[in-house]
C-alpha cells in the first residue's frame, strides 16, 4: 500500500469509528430517563449549538 493510501485509511478510520466512539461516550454521559410520567417544566436557559 502506498503511503498516501495508508494515511487516508487511518484518517477514515479515525473520523468514522472515532465519531462513533465520541457519539457513544456522549450518550453514556446522558443516561436514559425512566420517569416519563413526571412532568419536568422547562427552565428558560440553554442555547443552541448546532
Amino acid at each position: 500500500m502506498s503511503g498516501i493510501a495508508i494515511v487516508f485509511m487511518i484518517i477514515s478510520m479515525l473520523t468514522i469509528w472515532g465519531g462513533l466512539a465520541i457519539s457513544l461516550i456522549n450518550l453514556s454521559r446522558n443516561p436514559e430517563k425512566d420517569d416519563d410520567h413526571v412532568i419536568e417544566t422547562a427552565e428558560p436557559a440553554g442555547n443552541s449549538n448546532l
Partner: peptide, 17 residues
C-alpha cells in the same frame, strides 16, 4: 424523555462505521 439527537448521532456513525 428520550435523548433523540444523542441517539441519532450513534445511529448515523454506526451506519457509516
Amino acid at each position: 424523555k428520550s435523548d433523540l439527537t444523542g441517539s441519532g448521532y450513534v445511529v448515523a456513525f454506526a451506519n457509516s462505521g
